[in-house]
Computed example of a mutant assay.
Amino acid sequence: MAEVTAEARIEAPAEKVWATLTDFSLYGEWSTTHTGFPKGAPTSLEKGGTFEENMKLMGFPAEVTWTVEELETGSTLAIRGKGPMGVNVGTRYSLVPDGAATTVRIDGEFTGAAVSLMAGKLKDSATAALNESLRKLNALAV
């Protein structure tokens, strides 16, 4: 298993950050691992809903089928996905209002046999991607 976390303070209210985070037409502008939605971007989010995403991490392309596991509008989005080679991925976005700003935390988890072979490099690459994604999300949300 490889676990990664990134956190940033975004100088925008939680409602605006949430709107940007869940506007899938903007997803490619801030998510550095995102390369496309093969069946179209999700039009709405609901617990149990699914969508497919094409991603690239460590230079490897992957198609992940995501399921929304937890959804608290304005504060939490947790998704779990199945990728190639038996890799399972979990991502949790948490927003905490902080005055006129918002603290955004992204927790990621990778499991599966293939992960154990490259856990260290995967952690480094995924952490860098999350931090860059938060930087780009900040630029879009403010």
Rank of each mutant, 00 (worst) to 15 (best):
G99L: 14
E3L: 10
Y27V: 00
V142G: 12
S133P: 08
T67F: 03
R92K: 15
A114V: 05
F51C: 05
S44I: 02
L95P: 12
T102L: 12
F110H: 03
G36F: 06
R92A: 08
T33E: 06
A101F: 13
E109C: 01
V87F: 01
E29F: 08
T76F: 08
R92E: 10
G112H: 06
G74N: 09
P42I: 03
L130W: 13
L45E: 04
K47V: 08
L57M: 14
G81H: 08
R9C: 12
W18I: 06
E3K: 14
T22W: 05
G99K: 13
R105T: 15
A41R: 00
I106Y: 09
V4Y: 00
L140A: 06
L134H: 11
K56N: 09
V17A: 07
T65M: 09
V115D: 11
A62N: 11
P42D: 02
A8W: 13
S125P: 00
E69P: 01
E132P: 04
L130G: 09
E70N: 03
G83S: 03
Y93V: 06
D98Q: 15
G108S: 06
T65V: 15
V87M: 07
T102F: 14
E3D: 10
R80T: 10
L137E: 12
G40L: 05
T50L: 09
A129Q: 08
S44N: 02
K123N: 02
P38L: 07
A139R: 11
L134Q: 11
A78Q: 11
T76G: 02
L130V: 09
G28K: 06
T33C: 00
K47I: 04
M85D: 13
L122G: 00
E109R: 11
V68M: 02
P97M: 13
R92Q: 13
V142R: 12
A113E: 11
A119M: 08
A2L: 04
G81P: 07
T32C: 10
N138F: 08
G74C: 10
E46L: 03
T103K: 15
S44K: 06
E29A: 10
R80C: 01
T50G: 05
L122Y: 01
T35P: 00
A129M: 05
M118D: 04
A129D: 13
R80H: 05
P38A: 06
A126L: 05
V87Y: 01
M1K: 11
V115W: 07
M85E: 14
V17S: 09
A129S: 15
K47T: 08
P84A: 08
E70V: 06
V68F: 03
M55S: 13
G36W: 04
T73Y: 05
M58H: 12
T43N: 06
S116R: 09
A6G: 15
K121T: 08
F24M: 00
T76V: 14
D107Y: 02
E72N: 12
K121R: 10
F24S: 00
R80L: 01
R9M: 15
G83A: 07
L77Q: 00
L95T: 14
F24P: 02
K82M: 07
S133L: 12
K121P: 01
V68L: 01
G90I: 06
F24W: 02
T5N: 13
L26M: 08
L130H: 13
S75M: 10
G120Y: 02
L57D: 04
E109H: 04
T91A: 10
G81K: 09
L137A: 09
F110R: 02
I106W: 07
D23M: 00
